[in-house]
Amino acid sequence: MSVSSRQLFTKIHQQLQQIYPSEEARNIAFLLLEHCFDISRTAVLASKDIPDTNTDQINPLIERLLKHEPVQYVLGETLFYGRWFEVNSNVLIPRPETEELVYRIVEDFSFRKKDPLAILDIGTGSGCIAVTLAAEFPVAQVWAIDVSEKALQVAQANARLNSVQVNFVQADILDQQRIGLPENLQLDLMVSNPPYVTRAEMELMRQNVTAYEPHLALFVEGEDALLFYRHIASLGKSVLKTGGACYMETNENYTKQVQDLFEEYGYTATQLITDMFGKDRFVKAIL
């Protein structure tokens, strides 16, 4: 016995529309069918049959989605910069804005693809930035730090999944005396998407973010939105080569303050960079 994939898609779409807008529910339904049955959108639209003995496996996933759990966690994976990454509730879900940050780095350093660059990713989470840069710059030495042991386990799995070498270190950027990087390390590039959301902004965020994504990676303690950037700027002064670059994703409400902070720390050139929506989202600083 079999069931039409088109009919199953329609059923899932109707269920998800209880809490999701129609177009978002449609996209999630396609993702579920591809994940569970390895069936493409084209095959679904063509009503390709699925053995009905397998269809029950999708019900627990729909139940989780109806509780607002992000689809990336439900599926355990997401696509970032053309590569698959494992994700779970110990790491942030990689965002399109972070892909933009990586794209900017790859473009800026495109003439150095064959150079043995030294790169550090601060607050690596899923490892999406570090792993992607290791893949894009195959002769680079890439280090990545995170305070969370569980996040580092996910990042290590993603390095294996994408067949790259990254040096992962459990360390807290707020405690630079114990950061654990090699002595006399001199970096060409630092990159970070640190916690930058203040607690006051929590009520403005979607439920599927605040209820499921790790607060350790999202929020700064108190209302000091510049806390992590201050420590990143300080670290860069000691480990970046002259002319080395630091790229950071920021809270759009504090991007100019982050730029000013790096200038106060003596970085010789800084730049605000907008995201695809025209918002000030990134800061580039040259030592």
Rank of each mutant, 00 (worst) to 15 (best):
S4I: 02
Q15R: 12
Q15T: 06
L16C: 10
I19N: 07
S22V: 14
E23C: 06
A25L: 05
A25Y: 07
D38L: 11
D38T: 08
D38K: 09
D38F: 06
I39N: 00
V44E: 01
A46M: 09
K48I: 06
P51Y: 02
T53S: 14
P60V: 05
R64H: 11
V74I: 10
W84C: 08
I93K: 04
E100F: 08
E100D: 10
F109E: 07
F109M: 11
S110W: 04
F111Q: 15
R112P: 00
D115R: 11
P116E: 15
L120R: 13
G127L: 01
A130K: 02
A135L: 04
F137K: 01
D146W: 08
D146P: 05
V147K: 10
S148P: 06
E149T: 12
A155E: 04
Q156S: 14
A157Q: 15
A159T: 00
A159H: 04
R160S: 10
N162I: 04
V164E: 00
Q165P: 07
V166I: 07
N167R: 11
F168D: 05
V169I: 15
Q170P: 04
D175V: 06
I179R: 02
I179W: 05
L181S: 00
D188L: 08
P194E: 03
P195C: 08
Y196C: 08
A211M: 11
F219Q: 04
E223R: 00
E223I: 02
D224M: 01
A225E: 06
L226H: 09
R230I: 01
R230F: 00
H231A: 09
T242Q: 13
G244L: 08
A245R: 14
D260A: 15
D260G: 13
L261Y: 10
A269T: 15
A269M: 14
F282M: 14
L287V: 06
